[in-house]
């Protein structure tokens, strides 16, 4: 492979310095899986529509399947694996468990990270805002009502 097709990226991954040798065409989700064995971000629809591959880049939610790995050079990346502190689940994760907000679980990390971004931006969203914000994530098991409840519970959302 041509030298210019390859590069080294340095970034922060879940708070720790990370380095990876990548090819220019590789996506963020591929590199997270291959080089860091992180599988919380996972590719499903491959078109940025289902949200399974969500990662936070500099605090902003992106679709890891449409995001070139090269573009996280110098950035801070967070995946669902970086959310808990030690053995203590993040309150969002706890709320998803308490509200049974998943079935097969494949979409769950994406929903959790979208919720993280939502609550970072709006700590007390209305139910409509929650639904609007999470409308770009798909759950084929259709745990949607429970997901909304989980976000409401963790944010103290009022019903509208």
């Amino acid at each position: 492979m041509k030298e210019t097709y390859r590069r080294t990226i340095r970034f922060k991954l879940n708070g720790r310095p990370a380095i990876a040798e990548i090819a220019t065409h590789e996506t963020l989700v591929e590199v997270l899986q291959r080089d860091f064995s992180l599988f919380g971000a996972r590719e499903s629809c491959g078109q940025g529509l289902c949200g399974c591959c969500t990662a936070l880049v500099n605090g902003i939610a992106v679709s890891g399947c449409l995001y070139l790995a090269a573009f996280v050079d110098g950035a801070e990346v967070m995946t669902v694996e970086g959310l808990a502190s030690g053995n203590e689940l993040h309150p969002i994760q706890q709320s998803f468990v308490a509200n049974c907000a998943f079935q097969c679980g494949f979409c769950t990390p994406g929903f959790i990270l979208m919720t993280k971004e939502l609550l970072d931006r709006h700590p007390h969203p209305t139910t409509d805002e929650i639904r609007h914000y999470l409308s770009g994530n798909l759950c084929r098991c259709a745990a949607y009502p429970d997901i909304v409840h989980a976000v409401e519970a963790v944010s103290g959302a009022r019903k509208v």
């Binding site: 902003i60 449409l66 979208m114």
Partner: peptide, 12 residues
């Protein structure tokens, strides 16, 4: 913009 694609796409 609120209903343009989804938030992750709009972020990028």
């Amino acid at each position: 913009l609120r209903t343009l694609s989804n938030i992750r796409i709009r972020n990028v």
